[in-house]
Design a protein around this nucleic acid. Structure first.
Length: 654
RNA sequence: GCCGCUGUAGCUCAGUGGUAGAGCGCACCAUUGGUAAUGGUGAGGCCGGGAGUUCAAUUCUCCCCAGCGGCACCA
């Protein structure tokens, strides 16, 4: 072992130190103020405890709290302090795991009595004390046996399990902060005081040990921590903004839909919401027709034998709506459209010349989702899929998947979603079909993914999810990023070498032989209900004109303008615009406020002046300004804007 | 489904062991006002459902349902 190590500083300077010198010693040698500011070091880019000895030649960086890498340390340390606070306040509580997550951290505890809402303040207060004590974080490496003995003696059974989970050959590290210690792989900051004040305990929740519902349920505490108060405040504001976009709230305010307890997980669409829904279907229907799809409609209920054949009965029986009828038959509300589509396919002999056969349906599927999963429009028990099944020969697979991809990306773009992420989900444990068919299907989708990624010049990001596929085949899942950076999984392309055969579908090939088609399942919006919810949140209720169920309200300032307003309303209607008339005996301020709150995109305000001159005053949602233009001009402009993007493209193409 | 919290007027929410209150909205009257709340009057409630304790339950206890926040699930 060398006596000396060469350390390279961020400015490029190199210096020799005795082997085993710690980061702390080096910083202390530079300046007291730097030592005070430094939370940790990075050796050749790897973040380490400042107190770690340096045993080889490396490049060193010192992390202060403004370093982006420091945030993770602050949150991690904050989780430790929270755990200490909880164990101080409620002795006997067992600690389990406490990782850093996006925007914060959590720690899971095993504790008899549940935490109460008022405990948040108690925990925060105790954490402040621990942070004020500013105890240093110190690291020790213990033997496995000693560690297990220690935790077993403390009654920390989960920690004993965690020690067993540490891979052989890896050190068992213990971090101490004052009297308190935790099993942890680190790294940590220098002392608890470095966490600062910009943290907050957010909420309590239940969570299963090791994420498995078969295990005990622990109590999770979520918290957040930031480098400074300003960032914390910005984060809390961001949460508030997201809350304002909540589609459940906006749905009520905009009078789009409602839910009630007699139909949990089912939507009561009001006229305006249904108008939006129908706009989405019309749009998708046009896009699919243009792409060579046929549209069909299959029964909502079919005999259970179909679902046994398809494998749904075996895999999803508990999640199906099942009905016993007077004739003692068992019918199931369809949880998927595929078996129905295969029946339509099978009606009449198919030739290879008929393939690819692209069969679409706006089918309403019924799934008895677990009660705790329901969430507004985003997770319901009855939803409409823009579903399609594409029957192909094996060698058409690549071409069809790419065509679907192109259509998918083009459609998302029409709604303003251009930041797309595609996940490839591979075979799950519970599945049907032989492994060689899975090999083939996974290879095919993987090739498609590579090709899509290549074509997009790296604009489309991709990832692979082992074990997440459907029971009958692997899938590509399209994830959209919305206006405030949240991700929503929508479209899916699934390659299925199993179902067509199970349901007895075939075609006659060039050699007059029977062959089984490959089935591609695909949805682009996914669920119409869910997509509508996503759009409401993405646009914060400010729907683009072509999707808005009420595009304009004609408001009068004085009743002398009533006849003129009626005239405008009629003309808007004739031009295909969705308008309504507000002739109420109210002040214009009142009308503007009310329609603005209802997110009406365009207000056409008319008083005596406009009536005399044949003009309208246009006020757009979100703007305080108005422009006065000729009525005909206004109608032409709004009509153009209200045209769906695909129709606009067609109009300019001809 | 599991853990915790919540359920009072159309909406947002106060409140109490002696069967209820506000604001907004709604109806009516007056007001014709130029771009985010004109004034007045009035109507509106099985206090989520069921059982128990009590002289008396919206209030306390238990069970159920639904919603919310998570976890698990998501063909």
């Amino acid at each position: 072992m060398a006596d000396q190590v060469t350390i390279t500083f961020p400015d490029g300077a190199e210096r020799q130190f005795p082997n085993g010198t710690t980061g702390t010693e080096i910083v202390a040698g530079i300046s007291k103020s730097l030592l005070k500011k430094t939370l940790a070091m990075a050796l050749d880019g790897v973040v380490m405890d400042l107190a770690d000895p340096i045993k080889s030649d490396v490049g060193i960086e010192f992390l202060n709290r403004d370093d982006p890498r420091a945030l993770e340390l602050i949150r991690h340390d904050c989780a430790h302090v929270m755990a200490e606070a909880v164990q101080q306040l409620w002795p006997g509580t067992q600690v389990t795991i406490g990782p850093v997550i996006e925007d914060g951290f959590f720690y899971d505890f095993a504790k008899e009595d549940p935490f109460k809402p008022e405990d948040i303040a108690k925990i925060e207060k105790r954490m402040q004390q621990i942070i004020a004590n500013n105890a240093p974080f110190t690291k020790e490496v213990w033997s496995r046996a000693d560690t297990k003995k220690h935790f077993a003696a403390q009654g920390e059974h989960y920690k004993v399990e965690l020690v067993d989970a540490i891979p052989e050959g890896e050190d068992v590290k213990i971090y101490k902060q004052g009297e308190w210690l935790d099993l942890c792989r680190g790294p940590h900051m220098v002392s608890t005081g470095q966490i600062g004040k910009a943290f907050k305990i957010q909420k309590f929740a239940g969570a299963y040990w090791r994420g498995d519902a078969k295990n005990a349920q622990l109590q999770r505490i979520y918290g957040t921590a930031w480098a400074n108060e300003k960032e914390l405040k910005a984060y809390l504001t961001r949460l508030e903004e997201a809350e304002k976009r909540d589609h459940r709230k906006l749905g009520r305010e905009m009078d789009l839909f409602h839910f009630q307890e007699e139909a949990p997980g089912s939507v009561f669409w009001h006229d305006k919401g249904w108008d939006l829904f129908l706009s989405l279907i019309s749009y998708m229907r046009r896009r699919q027709q243009d792409a060579g799809y046929i549209e069909v409609n299959s029964p909502d209920m079919m005999d259970r034998t179909f679902w046994e054949l398809s494998g749904h009965w075996e895999n999803y029986r508990e999640n199906m709506f099942v009905s016993e009828t007077e004739d003692e038959r068992t019918f199931c509300c369809k949880p998927m459209n595929c078996p129905g589509h295969v029946q339509i396919y099978k009606h009449g002999l198919k030739s290879y010349r008929d393939l690819p056969l692209k069969m679409a349906e706006f089918g309403k599927v019924h799934r008895y989702e677990p009660s705790g999963a329901l969430h507004g429009l985003l997770r319901v028990r009855h939803f409409t899929q823009d579903d399609a099944h594409i029957f192909i020969t094996e060698d058409q697979l690549m071409k069809e998947c790419l065509a679907i991809n192109d259509l998918m990306l083009s459609i998302y773009k029409d709604f303003g979603f251009e930041d797309i992420f595609i996940k490839l989900s591979l075979r799950p444990e519970k599945r049907v079909g032989a492994d060689d068919l899975w090999d083939k299907a996974e290879k095919a989708l993987s090739d498609v993914l590579d090709e899509v990624s290549k074509r997009s010049d790296g604009n489309v990001k991709t990832a692979i999810n082992p074990g997440e596929g459907a029971f009958y085949g692997p899938k590509l899942e399209y994830v959209l990023r919305d206006a405030i950076g949240r991700e929503w999984q929508c479209g899916t392309t699934q390659v299925d070498f199993n179902l067509a055969e199970r349901l007895g579908a075939f075609y006659i090939d060039e050699k007059s032989e029977k062959r089984t088609p490959v089935l591609i399942h695909r949805a682009m919006f996914g669920s119409l209900e869910r997509f509508a919810g996503i759009l409401i949140e993405n646009f914060a209720g400010h729907l683009p004109l072509w999707l808005s169920p009420l595009q304009a309200v004609v408001c009068t300032i004085v009743s002398d303008a009533d006849d003129y307003a009626r005239d405008i309303h009629d003309k808007l209607r004739s031009a295909g615009l969705k308008s309504s008339l507000d002739l109420r005996n109210e002040k214009i301020n009142y009308k503007v406020r009310e329609h603005s709150l209802a997110k009406v995109p365009v207000l056409l305000v008319v008083g005596k002046r406009e009536a005399d001159e044949g003009k309208v005053s246009i006020r757009r949602l979100g703007s305080k300004d108005q422009t006065v233009v000729d009525l005909d001009e206004a109608i032409a402009m709004l009509s153009a804007e209200a045209t769906a993007p695909d129709l606009k493209r067609k109009a300019t193409a001809t």
